[in-house]
Design a binder for these strands. Structure first.
Lengths: 190, 190, 190, 190
DNA sequence: GATGAATGAGTGTTCATTCAT
DNA sequence: CATGAATGAACACTCATTCAT
C-alpha cells in the first residue's frame, strides 16, 4: 500500500490557510481547498473526518505553533515587565511573519466553528504567560483586576496593531512597537 | 430598487442580523433571511441589489446607529477625559443592549465583504470623537502617537470586554467598567 | 409568479416509476429522475421535500390508484365468492396494464424506505375487501384462520402470477386466471 | 481471484448479508462490507471480481444452502403429500433460523442484480422437489396446471408467512404452520 | 496475499438569482 | 410591488475501484 503522506496533510493545512485569507471562510469550499493543495476532494477525507475537522485541526495547529512562538526565550527568572515585553515583541514578530495564519485564526474565531474547540486546550499553550501575570499581581506590580481586562489591554491591542487590515496609518516599526508596549504597561502596572 | 414599504426593508435588516447571530455568516442564505423576514426571496431583490448589497447595507445601517449611540450627550465643551469617559460608558451601554447588532458587525468585519465598504464613510460617524482626541494630543493631555495605537487601547478593549463571547470571567458591572476605563486612560494620558 | 405545475409533479412520479423499473431502486438517483422528467434537480425539491419524500409519495400515489382499481365494481351485495373473483380479475387487469407501477411497489416494499410509510393508511384503501373477507368467515364460508394466512393465499399468488418477472411459463390468459382463482378459492373456502 | 483463505471469503459473505439486512441493499457499500468483515476494501477484490460478483455469489451461496435445507430428509419413496409437507416444514424451519439470509435473497431478487443469475442453476438445487410435483400430477393427485401456478400456491405463501416483515398478526407456531399447509394442499390437490 | 492511500465520478441537497404572473 | 416557481452551479461528501508497497 501507499503510505500516508504527511506532505499531503501539510499541503491541506496550507491550502486552507491560504484560501481563507484570499477568499474568506465561507467561500473556501472543500473542492477549492483540495485543488489548491493539489489533491482530490476525496483524498481530503482520508486525512480529515470532514470539513469541520479540517478547519478545527488547522486552527489548533496554528494555535500550538503560535503558543511556541510567543513564549520563545521565556525565562521565568526575569522580571514581569521584561517577560511581558519579550512576549509582546515575539507576538509582533510572529504575526508579521505569519500574517496568513494569524488572520485564519481571527476568521475562525468569528465563525460558528469556534464553538467546537476546547478552549482550555488552547489556553494551555499560553499557560506560563498566565502564570507570570498572576505573579505580577501577587507582587503588586500589576493591577489586581479581572484577567479578561488584563488580556483586553495586553493582547488585543497587539492583535489589532500587528494586523495591517485593522490599521490605516500604523507601521510596526521597532519604535512604534516600543511605544505601544509602553502604553500597555501603563495600563497594567500599579 | 428602494420603495416605500420601509417595514419590509427594516424586517430584512432585522432578519439578517438575527440569522447571522444564530447560524453564522455563511449559513445565512438569502432564502432563510427572506423567510425570517416574512417575504419572498424575490422581494428581497426589490429592496437590495443582491446579497452583498443586503449585507453591506445592514452593516452601514448598524454603524450609523452605533455612531449616534456612542456620541449621545457629546458636549465638546467638556474636558477630554470626561468626553472619553462618556463615550466609553455609551459604548458599553450600546453593546450590551444591542448585542446582536454588535456581533453582526464583528462577523461582517471578519468577512471578505468588509473590503467593499467605504471606510471613510464609516469613520465619519465617529468624527467628533476623533477631533477631540486630536485636541487632547495638541493640549499635551494625551500621548502623541499614531491614531491607530490610540484606537487600539481605547476602543478595542471595550469591544472585547463588552462582548460576552470573548470573556470568560469579566462581568460588565459599573465598577468593572470604571476600572477598565481607568486603565485605558492610563495608557493614553501623558 | 409562475404557478405550480401539476404536470411537473406528475412527470416526476412517472420518471421515478420508469427509472426504478429500468435501472432499479438504488441506481435511480435524483439527478437521473429529474433529467428523465425534464426538470432541474433543484426543481424536484420544490415538489418534494427530499428524495425519500419523492419515493414514498410515489408509492402512496400508486397504492391509492391501485386500491381504486382493485375495488372497481365492488358491490357488497354480491356473494363473497363473486366479490373475491371480481377483485381477483381486477388485480390481474391492473397489474398487466400497470406493470411498471406494480413493480415499483414491489421494489419499494423491499427497500428500507418501506418502513417510513404508515401501513394503516395503505390498508385503508383496501378496507371494503377486508370487511368482506371477515363476513365470509362469520358466515362460515371462508376458513377462520389468521388474516395473514388468507392474504398469503389470496393476494400473493396473484402478485406473483401477474408479474412476468416471476413466471417462466405462466401466461395470464383468461383461462389461467380462472384456474388460479379456483385454487385460491379451494384454499380459502371451508 | 479465489485463494486459500476461506475464512476471509466467508467473513465477506456474512458481512454482506448482515449489512444488507441492517441498512439495505443500496446503502451497503463495498467499504462498509469490507470493514464489517474485518478486511481492506482492496482485499475484497482478491476474492471477488467486483461488487456485483460479491452480491451474486452471496445469493448463489445462500440458495445452494437453502436448497439443501429444504430437501433434508427428502425420501422420494414417501407419498407426494408427505413429501410436500416435509418440505413445507423444512422451509419454515430454515427461514426462521436463517432470517437474515432469507431476507437477503428477497432484497436481491428485487434488485437489478437478479437478472445476472442463471436461473436454471438455482432451480437445479430444488430439482427433486419439482420432480415429485410432476409425479403428483401424473398420478392425478395434484391439479394439472402450469408449474408457475403450483409454485405460486406452494412456495410463495410460505415465503410470505415465514417472514415476519410481511405479517402483522401471524405467528409461525406449529399449529399455524399446519393450518397453512392444509390450505396449500387444498389448493393443489385434485 | 494483503493493504491503506488515492481518485474521478457520482450522491443528495442548497445556493443566489431570475422569470412569469 | 410582490411572489412562488424555476434553475445552473455549487455544496459537502461517498462511491466502486485501482495503485504502490
Amino acid at each position: 500500500m501507499r503510505s500516508r503522506d504527511d506532505k499531503k496533510q501539510e499541503a491541506l493545512y496550507l491550502a486552507t490557510i491560504k484560501l481563507v485569507n484570499e477568499i474568506g471562510f465561507s467561500a473556501s469550499s472543500v473542492a477549492k481547498i483540495a485543488r489548491e493543495a493539489g489533491v482530490s476532494p476525496a483524498t481530503l477525507y482520508i486525512y480529515f473526518k470532514n470539513k469541520e475537522d479540517l478547519l478545527v485541526s488547522t486552527y489548533l495547529e496554528i494555535k500550538e505553533e503560535m503558543g511556541r512562538a510567543l513564549l520563545a526565550g521565556f525565562d521565568e527568572g526575569l522580571p514581569v515587565h521584561d517577560l511581558l515585553h519579550r512576549v509582546w515583541c515575539n507576538t509582533f514578530a510572529y504575526v508579521s511573519e505569519n500574517l496568513a495564519e494569524f488572520r485564519y485564526t481571527e476568521q475562525f474565531a468569528n465563525s460558528p466553528y469556534s464553538e467546537l474547540v476546547d478552549k482550555t486546550r488552547v489556553r494551555a499553550h499560553f499557560e506560563p504567560l498566565l502564570r507570570v501575570i498572576q505573579q505580577g499581581i501577587d507582587r503588586k506590580i500589576i493591577k489586581d483586576v479581572d484577567p479578561d481586562i488584563l488580556t483586553a489591554f495586553l493582547f488585543h491591542p497587539i492583535m489589532v496593531l500587528a494586523n495591517p487590515k485593522h490599521c490605516s496609518s500604523f507601521k510596526p516599526s521597532g519604535e512604534n512597537i516600543e511605544i505601544a508596549f509602553r502604553m500597555a504597561w501603563d495600563a497594567l502596572r500599579l
